[in-house]
Write a protein that binds this DNA or RNA. Structure first.
Length: 544
DNA sequence: ATGTTATGAGGCC
DNA sequence: TGGCCTCCCTAACA
């Protein structure tokens, strides 16, 4: 049985960079799995091949099931009296097993596809699983509705048309790890933000409410402020670019203002002034954004309400306004970069909604537009330059793009199937625009399911061209086996910061970009190895 | 090495 | 509406 191959990819690095693979011997492989292989395991392998578990469709016919069962039982009876058949952890069936085989994950064939949610196949054969070379087939075609509805036309139409370039420049992908802060935070990272004016400063928040400040141009200059919040730090925002003050929101129900130099923070707003009165009464703030023109802060809580206040006078401007279904969490807020009175919100009620702040205060609290999704909307963002497009990330494993917010909003212009449907314990995935792309079409988002790269199970960071639905690049790092759900592109430089578990990675473009996926499906190898080799090494390294 | 646990949303009654 | 159960590629720590 072949063992996993060592990492052979060569990479150039800067002097200051940290490379995990420099710190351990990648060619010395862990041993041991082969010896433990029981007859039973071999039998399961054989049977899977016989039964066509690995067939094209990933389906099993009824007769095959029956046949498998009887052979199975016959064998078990002949050897032992107590049945200890291995069952599928998903459906508890006994004739197959879901899970990793080497670096390739096999789904339970009896469940709908984990990627596109449709029955009849698994993720391995899913037609929506985007290969880099042939990605066009992955996205659904442009949709046009006959019912063209004009929305926000009065704001955008004239100003924006001339600003949209006709020639699309080549994308520049930061696909090579430049430097890393391993275990910088004590809990998983929940948000990242580049300082808008201080070069090389990256701010990060974690699940515990701690704020991290890292000058990545000087590797050693990093600070953690521990007492900014008491639980999940959800957002970091600036009101003025040259300010040394940041505004943060948290699941502790507060919005804080923190001085970056001193770490002194003050509460601007606290939805839980009486402390903990049980989970039913606890309020959390997930959405936060600022209206740059007016210098206002907008925050939204877990019960569907929006709060507007002036951070200078620390006065609430209006009563809390219900902008999503009562009792449902508002997950995100985003002010339009071109017209900051236009607000985009998204929430657990499966909607993203567009609002005009000028109409909110006058008691006319109906939204301009409601964008329906099939499940929870993790994020919704206006495009960074013109604000005329919207990208949303929903838990139904689809990224939706609305192309022109002053035209047809009935349906998204494009739906891209992409794996970001997570169960608990992860920071929600959010597709974000590349602020440097003049065509406003490139987005970045981490991927949940693994891909097999030269025998390594890795979670890539995907760059997708929303104009075509094409997967432009999938960025991986052999030393990063964890999921990178927080990804932030630098507003000016060709850099990306990504938060993966407790570590932060800074990525830069490779001189010669090699975007071709090095994929090897090694069905049948390393059958017993649940955790891949690189994962084990990463764990070892972190324990040092 | 293996078990535990942090936790959220959907679905059912 | 609320309580209870379930859940598929986690990650870190006992």
């Amino acid at each position: 049985m072949p063992t996993s191959r060592p990492i052979t990819r060569s990479r150039t690095r800067t002097q200051a960079s940290i490379s995990l693979s420099d710190q351990y011997d990648v060619s010395s492989s862990d041993t041991s799995d082969d010896d433990n292989n029981s007859d039973l395991q071999e039998y399961f392998e054989e049977k899977e091949k016989e039964d066509g578990f690995l067939n094209d469709q990933g389906n099993r016919t009824e007769s095959e099931n029956m046949r498998g069962k009887s052979v199975d039982e016959g064998r078990m009876k002949s050897s032992i009296s107590i049945s200890f058949k291995k069952t599928c952890k998903v459906c508890k069936g006994t004739d197959h097993q879901a899970g990793f085989r080497g670096a390739t994950y096999f789904d339970c064939p009896r469940k709908p596809c984990f990627l596109c949610k449709l029955p009849g196949h698994t993720t391995i054969t899913c037609p929506q699983r985007m290969p880099l070379e042939n990605a066009l087939s992955a996205a659904s075609p442009w949709r046009t509705s006959k019912n063209i509805r004009t929305c926000l036309d009065y704001v955008f139409k004239r100003q924006l048309r001339p600003n949209i370039p006709t020639i699309k420049p080549a994308f520049c992908i930061p696909n090579q790890v430049d430097r890393v802060l391993i275990r910088f935070h004590s809990r998983r990272i929940t948000c990242l933000e580049f300082h808008p004016s201080k070069n090389g400063v990256l701010l990060s928040g974690d699940k515990k409410g701690q704020l991290g400040i890292w000058d990545y141009t000087k590797l050693c200059e990093k600070t953690i402020y521990e007492s900014v919040h008491s639980c999940i730090l959800n957002n970091i925002k600036f009101i003025t670019k040259n300010d040394g003050t940041i505004y943060t929101s948290s699941s502790d129900g507060s919005v804080s203002c923190t001085d970056l130099e001193t770490g002194m923070s003050s509460r601007l707003m606290d939805l839980n002034p009486d402390g903990w009165n049980g989970p039913a009464n606890w309020r959390m703030i997930y959405g936060l954004d600022c209206n740059q023109e007016k210098g206002l802060l907008l925050a939204a809580d877990n019960l569907g309400s929006l709060y507007m206040f002036d951070p200078r006078s620390n006065k609430m401007l209006t009563e809390p306004l219900l902008i999503h279904k009562r009792g449902s969490k508002v997950v995100g807020l985003h002010c339009n970069p071109f017209q900051s009175d236009i607000l985009l919100s998204c929430g657990n009620d499966h909607f993203a909604r567009i609002w005009d702040l000028r109409q909110l205060g006058t008691g006319k609290s109906s939204s301009l537009c409601n964008l329906q999704h099939d499940r929870v909307v993790n994020s919704a963002y206006f495009s960074p330059r013109t604000g005329s497009k919207i990208v949303t990330t929903s838990q139904d494993n689809r990224i939706r793009v609305w192309d022109c917010i002053f035209r047809d909003m009935e349906r998204p212009a494009r739906e891209i199937v992409h794996s970001h449907d997570f169960n608990r314990y992860l920071t929600p995935f959010r597709a974000e625009w590349d602020p440097k792309d003049p065509s406003e079409s490139l987005i970045v988002i981490g991927r949940y399911i693994t891909e097999n790269y030269d025998g390594l199970a890795l979670h890539p960071i995907d760059f997708i061209d929303t104009a075509t639905g094409q997967l432009v690049a999938e960025v991986i790092e052999p030393d990063m086996p964890t999921i990178s759900s927080v990804n932030k592109l630098h507003p000016v430089e060709n850099l990306m910061a990504s938060g993966s578990s407790r570590s932060i990675f800074i990525w830069k473009p490779q001189k010669q970009q090699n975007l071709k996926k090095q994929k090897q499906v090694d069905i049948g190898s390393d059958v017993n190895e649940e955790k891949t080799e690189n994962k084990k090494k990463f764990i070892k390294l972190r324990k040092k």
